[in-house]
Write a protein that binds this DNA or RNA. Structure first.
Lengths: 197, 197
DNA sequence: GACGACCGAGAACGAGCGTTCTCGCTACGG
DNA sequence: CCGTAGCGAGAACGCTCGTTCTCGGTCGTC
């Protein structure tokens, strides 16, 4: 009990801690394989407290996905901000993916996994996943526009990124996948710029 | 009882009928949401018979995925054989996808869905999915080679196809996705041919 | 110092489901 | 005509897991 708790800030911290713990377990083992008991044990809170923070497992899952969405966004933006050239800023998406794929414990896109596990059972989960994918597409469209590209090529870049994630997850040998997708995106972007010029 | 049964051929037919029925239910509702009872009801066989044909649900799932792999292959080849130009034969992959995405009840790639649901629980299922994806990649590499393209561009075509499936499944609005991926593949293939020429 | 509200730990409950068991019928062989 | 093997229908069992309940202790308050 190293938490003073009982302050509103303490509550927020506990909630965040639970979400982070659940995210890790869910991503490692799959959402359906991780029961509330496991979350309780790993997060060190009681079931009662768990259910006072989240009315149901569904709500916890949604909170986890929202956190993950936020972290995804931050990772993308961090890599984007390393580049100044608009073309490079588009391609930074694949640098981010490359780095991610190489991390130990990479198990594919958490949103796609969640959709596969729960998409047909929970409308809330399906909505959050869809929302995230729309966000990602909008993000890429922004970068591509700044590079002078069309929304059509932005969609193609999105398809490459999604395909890279799926393929990296399933084959388990993601070494060349992100760089291959990056090269494809560069070719498509350059062709689009040449065509609309 | 319109089956004379007791002949080996009859057994095969029953088995096939069960696999087909399970495939439909699994694809529509997700594998985890369909119990053996539902398969029994829909296929019109007893549980005993079900378990005499398949030792476990896992075995049934693997059989379903193998059937689906076969049907996928046949669909791809049917579209491929409509074209004679090697470049068009590569792009026929996306004509197949376009047609598939437009079908009522399209719910994404059954293998990716199965992997999301069971990949972390059943090694057999994970293996079959991986195997299918490797097969697909090999198939595309064959087509691309005949068009004079490299394996590198073949991988890029695969990434586009995978990304199209994922995106079409999650957004639920697959109208422009396959044609967009097709155009991207054409651009990449042409660029590769020009580069290696 | 006593009382009451709160909270953690874990038991308990109920539903879903994979798998097996039981029972009764049917059909075939002697 | 009888016995028996096989099979279909569905009950039953055991496990998992989401959710709720119970019990005991603790801490703040009068």
């Amino acid at each position: 009990m190293n938490q003073q708790s009982s302050t509103p800030a303490g509550e927020d911290t506990v909630r965040e801690q639970v979400v982070r713990t659940a995210d890790r377990l869910y991503y490692e083992q799959g959402i359906l394989s991780v029961g509330m008991d496991s979350v309780r044990d790993a997060a060190g809170v009681s079931l009662k407290r768990l259910y006072s923070l989240f009315a149901s497992k569904d709500e916890l899952v949604v909170a986890v996905l929202r956190l993950r969405q936020q972290m995804l966004r931050q990772g993308l933006e961090a890599h984007r901000d390393l580049a100044t050239d608009p073309r490079e800023r588009v391609l930074s998406v694949f640098d981010f993916l490359d780095r991610w794929f190489g991390e130990p414990g990479f198990r594919g896109c958490g949103f796609i996994n969640a959709f596969g596990e729960l998409g047909s059972r929970s409308d809330d989960v399906a909505s959050v996943v869809r929302e995230t994918k729309v966000d990602f597409r909008t993000y890429v469209e922004g970068l591509v526009r700044e590079a002078g590209g069309s929304d059509a090529v932005a969609l193609q870049v999105v398809l490459l990124a999604e395909g890279a994630q799926t393929t990296a997850a399933i084959t388990g040998t993601p070494s060349l996948i992100a760089s291959s997708a990056r090269a494809a995106a560069a070719t498509l972007l350059d062709a689009d710029l040449a065509a609309t010029a």
